[in-house]
Amino acid sequence: MRPETRAAYGFLSPWLIGFVGLTLGPVLATFVMSFSDYDVLSSTQWVGTENYSDALSDSHAHAALANTLFYTALYVPLSILTALGLALLLHSAGRLKGVFRTVIYLPVVTPPVATGVLFLQLLNGQSGLINSALGAVSLPTPNWTTDPMWIKPGIVIMSLWSVGSVTLILFAALAEVPAHLREAALVDGAGAWRRFYHITLPMISPAIFFSVVVNTIASLQLFSEVYTMYFGKTTTPPPEAALFYVVYLFQQAFEEFEMGYAAALSWLLFLIIMAVTAVQLAVSRRLVHYRGD
């Protein structure tokens, strides 16, 4: 081996060790464990595909998956549209840009646990700030934290408050759209909407696609805010409408110590995320415009 190659692998060694020991190994171990019954204390029992058939007939697992998919389907498009609107606004904010950007970003800096604790109060059906604002303009004031129909929309509202990081990503993409393209279109007499649709949107489509993929993966794994608000030690039982997939996975693994079953749930989530990402990739080939194509 050339000394250069040896040195290169030396530099790479932390990641190589970590990849094998803390990524690839655990992913494979999760798969193997999903065919076992393991509670940490007693020895491992091999149960074949029992964990998977259990998951298929487990109504809590169904609810958790349905809640998570519902939330993701609602939140991801809304977050992209909101972030795009804010990014466009930011782009034309002139001197206010710095302040407005900071304001939008403050919620992102707020720790998720703190956001959860705060929105538990803001969303309160009787005394919450959100309902008093909605009531002031005669809009319906649902019980966001207790009505099973409104719990997930409430969580979506909370998540939209922290839309600042997607906004910044789209804003950075907007800033890279060459001004001469827009000016050329202006000279050709294209209106604002056509300039946006035919020039800006294609130019920033890679950033939009990236945000969709990353946001979807994150939404399917939503945990901290929801666990903070509805789980842990509570005097009332947690509402099933707030049971998210990773919350259920966490409960099975670290509260029930059903490690084998939780491993099967992990592996299923892994497959779901890969499938969703693959679909998004396939769709993106027709919609996303890469410069240089």
């Binding site: 050339r2 250069e4 190659t5 040195a7 290169a8 692998y9 530099f11 790479l12 990641w15 990849f19 803390l22 990524t23 190994g25 655990p26 992913v27 171990a29 999760t30 464990m33 993929v213 993966i217 399917l220 794994q221 990773v246 996975l249 693994a253 490690m259 939780a262 491993a263 992990s266 592996w267 989530l269 892994f270 995320i273 990402t277």
Partner: peptide, 28 residues
């Protein structure tokens, strides 16, 4: 800095591992 065999494949692996859900490795 370095040029070596398999570099691009390894770097693709680095980028790919970014997409890996942390739930897939949590229990092990």
């Amino acid at each position: 800095y370095f040029q070596f065999k398999g570099k691009n494949a390894l770097f693709a692996l680095v980028l790919g591992s970014m997409m890996l859900p942390s739930a897939a490795t949590l229990i092990p």
